[in-house]
Amino acid sequence: MKKIFSLLAIIAALTFSSCSDDNDDNITLNTEAQTTFSFKHTWNDTEVTSADFNTIQYTNENGEMLSIERLRYVISDITFSRDGQDDIVFDIYNLVDVTNNNNTTLSLDENIPTGVYTNVSFTFGLDNEDNAENYIDLNTENFNVPEMLGGGYHYMQFDGKFINSSDAEQGFNYHAIRAVDNPGMNPTFPQDTFFEVNLGAVTITNNATFQVQMNIAEWFKSPNLWDLNQYNQMLMPNSTAQIMMYENGASVFSLENIIQ
């Protein structure tokens, strides 16, 4: 008998909830919205997906031809700022894996109130506090940074090949991490290299999808003209390279569109 009651209860619940949903849509204005972030990747104006990987076909600002073989990065702490009210902060992280087309879309678990926001932002990488946590899913993805470099996680792994100055194909590992000096038992950290990406002001009236774009070419452009012949591999323990990545990262992301 118990089984029947619980079944009936479920049916009733389903019926009622679907009715109330209908009412909402028809009568009241939305007071809450679900937000989704979708990440798209380009080389300047050309879209890049993993189908475009492994072919030397892109030319960076410094004139080197290159291919992409792997691209994945972490974004975290999505923040909605409002005038006169507390920020709404989602203390989350997401590994955008372009190689396997995983997690290129992220829907936030909780809705936010509709209304006017002065800024929407996220962190590229992990701030130092988050970077000190143990994330078993990122461990499983082999995204760790060695303990002697301070531990924590990569912010980005961007691997490929370029044609070097001797006309030969050579690998590059544009791996962004927290800049570090004195690798070993007591590494030191010259400056922070995670950064905030500001998507700007937005009025949210409905469920919204933020279409965020990473222009991969920008990693090589400005303010530091990137010379792959000089900076190609073994960049993790190279704090100069890390700080240059951080600086170039400032112009990498943009908000393409908000669909709501």
């Binding site: 143990n134 461990n139 499983t140 082999n142 060695p146 002697m148 590992n173 690798p183 073994m234």
Partner: peptide, 18 residues
């Protein structure tokens, strides 16, 4: 094993965290 300038094995073969 963990040093990018020496073995750099960890990018493919796990680490104390994996």
């Amino acid at each position: 094993f963990m040093d990018e300038t020496r073995g750099d094995c960890f990018h493919c073969h796990g680490s104390p965290n994996n």
